[in-house]
């Protein structure tokens, strides 16, 4: 009789456990699907950004391959485009970027420079490797038409030679 009670107790307990487990499994199915869907949604959202900086990375790799660690001397470019002592060059502090690269800014003051000469200077600066790209410009009044006093800020990239 004791053995039968034992069996009965074990059977009852296990049956209740099995029922509870089945209920839990059944009731949690929707939640499980929800969790999986949420993770898949998040993954899709993140995967949209994969390769987001591919062009930038390619440029960096290209510069490193060419060992173009620093931009050309902006003073020399100005001298070639505008003549000697036409530009006052003021380098600014560099700010750190990714992978050891730095952003270098340089301010340039030009007095009574024609727009055409200034355009040649900008083009020459942009053609160097890494290029000097214009970030800001302020043109002040001049006595002559087609000319102006200019304050420019250039931006370029540099990295310490490894």
């Amino acid at each position: 009789m004791n053995a039968e009670r034992l069996w009965k107790g074990a059977a009852g307990t296990l049956a209740v456990c099995a029922l509870a487990a089945s209920l839990n499994t059944g009731l949690s199915t929707a939640r499980h699907r929800e969790i999986l869907s949420a993770k898949e949604r998040d993954l899709q959202q993140i995967q949209i950004h994969a390769g987001r900086w591919a062009r930038e990375d390619a440029l960096r790799a290209a510069l490193e391959k060419q060992q173009a660690w620093a931009p050309a001397d902006l003073g020399e470019i100005a001298a070639l485009a505008l003549g000697a002592n036409a530009a006052k060059i003021t380098p600014r502090a560099a700010t750190a970027l990714a992978d050891g690269w730095q952003r270098r800014e340089t301010a340039v003051e030009l007095r009574d420079v024609s727009y055409a000469a200034a355009a040649r200077f900008l083009a020459a600066a942009a053609e160097s490797v890494p290029p000097w790209r214009l970030r800001e410009i302020e043109i002040g009044p001049s006595a002559q038409a087609g000319k102006g006093a200019m304050s420019l800020v250039f931006e370029s990239l540099e990295k310490k030679r490894p």
């Binding site: 062009r55 440029l59 370029s156």
Partner: peptide, 19 residues
């Protein structure tokens, strides 16, 4: 961090806008 690289790659840039 990559903005200067994008600027460097920009075919038009500020120069074109100014012009």
């Amino acid at each position: 961090e990559t903005r200067p690289f994008r600027n460097a790659l920009d075919p038009e840039g500020m120069e074109t806008r100014l012009a």
